[in-house]
């Protein structure tokens, strides 16, 4: 099915031929055979993928493609059934999430996790690494950590100024708008001086007025020498800022390529437009809601068999009830449970 692809065969980032799971010239993350199953359902099944260092990589795909689950696996927030992956050459499989973060791989969350009853500044300071005052006994003796704390405050203030949050410094994070929380979360991640920043849907729920500055901030990260990997639905953002795009569908990496051409890739078209092709959604409205999870699963099973679907189905033909079904897709379950 990749006969009709318009993606170029080679690319400066790629070592060899462009394609799903292709080798990169200078990878920072290399993952092999990562599988995560929920019950009988395979949410993630990534055979091989590499993330290029020093660039902005977008991870896209339809709802339920396993993007967030893959994120959770890479950062240690979820355990895979099997698989290996490494970050800067050292294996990260089964490393707990906080140690992943300490190695310089810091993530944000789809549903913003600003710490509401801490002030913006306290949120920022929490991001700083190797704080002496974070030990139980050292905490009692202020002289031990006073200087380090002052340095961290200074750095936090610089970052807050850069993200235009300096006016909110002493406010509780709960009082910020959705977009400001996204910014705060990003700024907080930067406090730990990461080498790889992983953003889970940075644009979700952001006021359009803030979109441009958020884009600039993400680009700024690359200029500061960091690698960025983000999950996004907003194709505008993907096209504007990413250097490389990885497409997931049904848990697998189905395509890779530069943003200019990736949307013409046949596999991508299949993934996006064929996703709900052969499920009889008309009957779903009359289903008992208790069975919707099972419906979603059945739908997925149907999709798995739906290889080689004709492109050209009208997306508009997808009836409304598709949305709740997609909401219940397994990809999002771990998030819900962590409430």
């Amino acid at each position: 099915m990749s006969d009709t692809t318009t993606t170029p065969r080679t690319h400066p980032l790629v070592d060899g031929e462009v394609g799903p799971g292709c080798k990169k010239v200078d990878p920072i993350v290399v993952a092999d055979g990562v599988v995560r199953q929920f019950g009988g359902l395979t949410a993630v099944d990534v055979a091989h993928v590499e993330i290029p260092r020093g660039h902005i990589t977008a991870l896209i795909g339809p709802n339920g493609a396993g993007k967030t689950t893959f994120f959770n696996l890479l950062t240690g927030f979820d355990r895979p059934n099997q698989g290996q992956w490494s970050f800067e050459g050292s294996s990260l499989a089964r490393v707990p999430s906080h140690k992943v973060a300490r190695k310089g791989m810091v993530r944000t969350f789809q549903l913003t996790k600003s710490l509401g009853r801490l002030t913006v500044l306290q949120n920022m300071l929490l991001g700083a690494r190797d704080q002496r005052g974070e030990g139980l006994f050292a905490a009692l003796l202020k002289p031990l950590w006073k200087a380090q704390e002052a340095a961290n405050v200074e750095r936090a203030d610089q970052l807050l100024a850069r993200f235009k949050l300096d006016a909110k410094r002493e406010d509780y994070a709960a009082s910020l708008s959705g977009g400001q929380r996204k910014l705060l979360e990003m700024a907080r991640a930067l406090m730990s001086e990461p080498t790889l920043v992983m953003l889970d849907e940075p644009m979700a729920g952001v006021n359009p007025a803030l979109t441009q500055s958020l884009l600039d901030h993400v680009k700024g990260l690359k200029d500061d020498g960091m690698t960025v990997l983000f999950v996004e639905h907003d194709m505008h953002m993907v096209r504007h800022i990413s250097d490389w795009v990885i497409v997931m569908a049904e848990g697998k990496v189905v395509a890779e390529g530069p943003p200019e051409t990736i949307m013409q890739d046949q596999a991508v078209v299949d993934a996006y437009l064929g996703a709900h092709h052969d499920t009889d959604l008309g009957t779903l409205t009359n289903q008992q809601v208790a069975q919707i999870h099972e419906e979603a699963d059945a739908e997925r099973d149907a999709e798995l068999e739906a290889d080689g679907i004709e492109a050209g189905d009208e997306p508009a033909a997808t009836p409304e009830p598709e949305a709740p079904a997609a909401e219940a897709a397994p990809e999002q379950r771990p998030e819900e449970e962590q409430r």
Binding site: V289, A290, I292
Partner: peptide
């Protein structure tokens, strides 16, 4: 049982 499973989803479907 539907409400137990997911209250908002149940509400959205008219329960």
């Amino acid at each position: 049982r539907a409400v137990s499973d997911n209250a908002s989803l149940a509400a959205a479907s008219g329960i």
